[in-house]
């Protein structure tokens, strides 16, 4: 069953057609990669899925419910978490606080006035956050300010924050952009581990073919705002159209 359905989505910015009639189905519990050359409309598409942009036409259904017109926090509460190209974390807060916030958000919803309670008394939530830090191998960095983490650790923390909410769909926007090779491989291993251990659907936008072919089960190639082809990694690799549009110039 497709957990995310994109139907005939188009988006224009003035005279620029960023997306034209995009159709896309992301199967539940799969890893689906969206690739394409610069300017293909990958980020625009992603922004349409999370409530940042409103498409001009078309529909976006998550679990058969429309997400169009909803605020990002409402879409997140439905079960979609997003990882950004540059890690978006709470830099001034400690690592453990970064991990606590999404868990509070999951339990308490978009707003709760818990001004007279203490965090230390929320034992269940603190334990959950600590377990997630453990899983991310970051338990030793518990009290550090998130801004002082290395780039790779920031990415791990962000992914951990998203996972702590047990999302049904995890959206990754070029998760390894600007990373050193070692950090990239660590991130790939982490994502593989997540895929194996959890009931989760992952949609990933990526430039790095190494990352795409190590992770993806389905690949959609986007070119000039429309899906060129959708297939398995093996077939994409051999597809001459894709080579021409994308891989050829990269190789």
């Amino acid at each position: 069953m497709a957990i995310l359905k994109v139907k005939d989505v188009s988006k224009r910015f003035g005279g620029l057609k960023a997306l034209t009639n995009v159709n896309l189905d992301v199967e539940e519990n799969s890893v689906h990669a969206i690739i394409g050359p610069n300017g293909a409309g990958k980020s625009t598409l992603l922004n349409c899925l999370v409530g940042k942009l409103m498409p001009d036409t078309g529909a976006v259904l998550f679990d058969n419910a429309s997400v169009l017109g909803l605020e990002p926090f409402q879409i997140n509460q439905m079960g979609i978490s997003r990882v950004f190209q540059t890690p978006e974390i709470f830099g001034e807060l400690t690592v453990i606080e970064n991990m606590l916030i999404p868990i509070f958000a999951m339990r308490d919803g978009v707003f709760r006035m818990h001004a007279y309670e203490t965090i230390a008394n929320e034992k269940a939530i603190v334990e959950q956050a600590e377990a997630m830090l453990e899983e991310m191998n970051m338990a030793d960095k518990r009290e550090m300010h998130a801004a002082s983490l290395s780039r790779g650790d920031k990415r791990r923390l962000e992914i951990g924050m998203c996972l702590s909410q047990n999302p049904r769909l995890l959206l990754l926007d070029e998760p390894t952009a600007g990373m050193a090779r070692a950090d990239t491989n660590n991130t790939i291993d982490l994502l593989k581990q997540i895929k194996d251990e959890r009931d989760i659907t992952i949609a990933i936008i990526e430039h790095d073919m190494h990352v795409v072919f190590s992770l993806a089960e389905r690949i959609t190639v986007l070119a000039q705002g429309t899906p060129l082809v959708e297939d398995t990694p093996e077939n994409i690799r051999g597809n001459p159209k894709v080579r021409e549009a994308y891989l050829g110039e990269a190789a």
Binding site: E71, F73, N76, F84, F90, L93, E97, H114, A115
Partner: peptide, 21 residues
């Protein structure tokens, strides 16, 4: 309180806050 932590989160990164529900 957790509320105070949320307020510091507002100061730190509203984008992440929004995408954290």
């Amino acid at each position: 309180s957790p509320f105070g932590m949320m307020l510091r989160a507002v100061k730190s990164n509203q984008q992440r806050m929004n995408y954290t529900g």
